[in-house]
């Protein structure tokens, strides 16, 4: 069979889901945001809930997420996405509601909103992209920046004595009775991408059960902020981020 005949519609095995728009993503080359967006969009597509999903974009690199998801979306003030999502879900309880937030948004300025939405068990999905840095504002220290990790506001490396410790907010949230499903994944290899997708799918399926908040952390790279090539950054992430932020389910529903 020649290659030309392979490229016909009946042999199609993978293409961009139509729940993602055709806009060129503004993210830096190799950034995990795009892959995380696409997985969430694929899940919305596969569950057939595009018309019943309302997303909330944060402030940070993914501030423009609403350009890429072809679903109704709201743009929240910095850190307030879980409160905005609460407002949406309370008046439209039958809709699927998600927030998509970075580490500064979710684990620094929005810590109160995050914890309290999870503590109330708001029946929403929170997608948390943890790359340990403030990408949008140019590489400043994040609450999740590792000890000793350099950033523009920790140029000699994060000194935990004066700058605090990298915050494992996901473990913290798993302690709350309001959370139903809490997991940490990544999107840097095909296998990890598939696991992330599975987690996102479960999380949205659980939303129908009205059992509480589902929280999916995605440990991601920031090639520009970390000053590495994308491939190097993925390796660095495996070697440095994963030991501190180990991948896997942290809280799974009781059978």
């Amino acid at each position: 069979m020649s290659e030309n005949t392979i490229k016909n519609p009946e042999n199609l095995v993978y293409e961009k889901t139509s729940v993602m728009t055709d806009r060129v993503l503004h993210y830096c080359p190799g950034c995990g945001h795009g892959t995380a967006h696409r997985m969430l969009a694929e899940v919305i597509d596969e569950l057939g809930i595009q018309g019943d999903t309302i997303g909330v974009a944060p402030v940070g690199c993914s501030v423009l997420a609403y350009y890429y998801f072809d679903v109704d979306m709201q743009e929240a003030a910095h850190g307030r996405a879980p409160a905005v999502a609460t407002g949406i879900k309370r008046v439209l309880p039958e809709k699927y509601v998600f927030t998509y937030q970075g580490d500064g948004d979710l684990a620094a300025i929005g810590t109160a909103e995050t914890i309290h939405a999870c503590n109330r068990g708001e029946n929403i999905l929170v997608v948390f992209i943890n790359n340990g840095i403030y990408g949008m504002t140019g590489g400043q220290m994040a609450p999740t920046t590792l000890e000793g990790m350099k950033s523009s506001t920790s140029p000699r490396g994060r000194d935990v004595k004066t700058m605090g410790n990298p915050l494992k907010i996901t473990e913290l949230l798993a302690q709350l009775p309001g959370t139903y499903f809490v997991t940490r994944q990544s999107v840097h290899t095909p296998a990890n991408v598939r696991k992330t997708k599975k987690a996102l799918k479960k999380a949205l399926e659980y939303q129908k059960l009205d059992k509480g908040t589902c929280f999916v952390e995605v440990v991601a790279n920031c090639p520009s902020g970390w000053k590495m090539t994308p491939v190097q950054s993925n390796k660095w992430m495996e070697e440095n981020m994963f030991p501190y932020y180990p991948l896997g389910d942290i809280k799974v529903p009781e059978k």
């Binding site: 309302i54 909330v56 709201q74 929240a76 003030a77 307030r80 409160a83 905005v84 999502a85 609460t86 407002g87 949406i88 309370r90 008046v91 439209l92 109160a112 909103e113 309290h116």
Partner: peptide
Amino acid sequence: AESEIAAINMVYGAAGC
């Protein structure tokens, strides 16, 4: 809400609907 800040942002979310 847990704060006035959260309350007004809940207003934003629901008003946006």
